[in-house]
Simulated assay, not measured.
Amino acid sequence: MTEGNFVDYVKLHVTSGNGGKGSVHLHREKYITKGGPDGGDGGRGGHIILRANPNMWTLYHLKFKRHFRAGHGEHGSKNRSTGADGEDIFVDVPLGTVIRETETQKILHEIVEEGQEIIIAEGGMGGRGNWHFKSSVNQTPRYAQPGIPGEEINITLELKVLADVGLVGFPNAGKSTLLSVITAAKPKIADYEFTTLKPNLGIVEYRNFQTFVMADIPGIIEGAAEGKGIGHRFLRHIERNSTLLFLIPADAPDIKKQYEILLDELRRYNPELLDKERLVAISKCDMLDEELEAELKEQLDAAFTIPYVFISSVAQQGLQGLKDKLWQMLNA
């Protein structure tokens, strides 16, 4: 999937169908001149239904179709015939989609399970026909109920990527390179910051044909929690990852300080993110000789209370150990 095809935020205008009118009809046939009321009920208006589709990874299919309108219910007719229900409209969305009311930004629902269906705009009920209203004092009612109008609502769909491991790091830390090496994903890679503007997903193949999903999240900068850079547009994707892999290059001026800045941005955005399992990967370690690596290990042992590993995506060093550690954390 190309970067331009990854759409994680769309606004939709949805309208459900109106209910059909109840029928006002008096039964008439040969030899029966006063048969009484037999007007049928109106049909229900169509619903707008959001449906989970596990084969989708993006909201791209909604980029150019923003308006959905369900069918109206048919009117009732004679012989107590109920009108047909309006056609329901199904809108497929990927797992991890959050539905908000656009005006209030209130979260209405979240799509997180395969096969889940949410009626986001309910069709209006059909009106009752006149046969419902007959009584001993009014045996030929000449009125029926009109159908109830459908609902009209503006909603916002936000996608929060569902992945087992989320890659967290500053721009140009080597996240896309790592993803391209240990998965079949083909993210854009270049030697300038913010090469990645949209999350990329890749499936990591582990031992015995087992797999887990890794997400390359665009680089965090200081102030991202306040919306600097492309702050909120990508921080929400980290919320659904069960394990966070912090990627910090070996040539960083201060590894511990970079880690603390990243951690602070996550805490300011959502403190619950700190409850997730965390692992630090020191990337680009092919630049280190044995002496420098030993010295760096000594510093990191004193600085970190969480586990860390040394890796090099380009030289493919330490990658199996990284997979082993991630698999262990995911299945703890």
Rank of each mutant, 00 (worst) to 15 (best):
E29K: 09
I120R: 11
E74L: 06
G86N: 04
E110R: 15
T58P: 09
T82G: 08
D38F: 03
G22Y: 07
G36T: 09
V112M: 15
H25F: 03
F90P: 07
F64A: 13
G123H: 08
T15D: 07
E114T: 11
D85L: 02
E114R: 14
R100H: 08
V91I: 15
G76A: 03
V14P: 11
M125Y: 13
Q105V: 00
G86A: 07
L12N: 04
R80H: 08
V93R: 04
H27T: 14
T102A: 12
G20N: 14
Y60P: 05
H61A: 11
L59V: 03
N55C: 08
K11Q: 03
S16D: 03
E103S: 15
T102W: 03
V10L: 06
M125D: 15
I49S: 08
E74M: 05
G123P: 10
K78S: 13
K65C: 01
K21I: 06
L59W: 00
E114Y: 05
E117S: 10
L108A: 05
G36Q: 14
H61N: 12
H72D: 15
L50R: 07
G115I: 04
H61C: 05
V93N: 13
G20S: 12
K63G: 03
S23A: 15
T58N: 05
G20L: 10
T58D: 04
Q116Y: 03
T82P: 02
G42Y: 03
N79L: 14
Y31N: 15
K106Q: 12
I111F: 12
A70F: 00
I49T: 06
V93F: 06
P54C: 10
T15R: 12
P54D: 10
Y31F: 12
R66F: 01
E101V: 00
L26D: 15
H25R: 11
P94S: 11
L50C: 04
T15Y: 02
S16Q: 02
T104A: 01
G86V: 08
S77H: 01
G46M: 05
S23G: 11
D88I: 04
E114W: 04
V98Q: 05
H25E: 15
F68N: 01
E29Y: 08
T104F: 00
H27P: 12
S81D: 08
L108E: 12
I49H: 08
T58F: 02
L26R: 14
G17Y: 03
S81C: 08
P37R: 13
R69L: 05
S16N: 10
L26V: 11
T102L: 11
V93K: 13
L12A: 04
G115Y: 08
E87H: 03
E113N: 12
G115V: 00
D85S: 10
A84T: 01
G36S: 09
G17F: 02
K30V: 08
Y31G: 14
R51V: 10
D38Q: 06
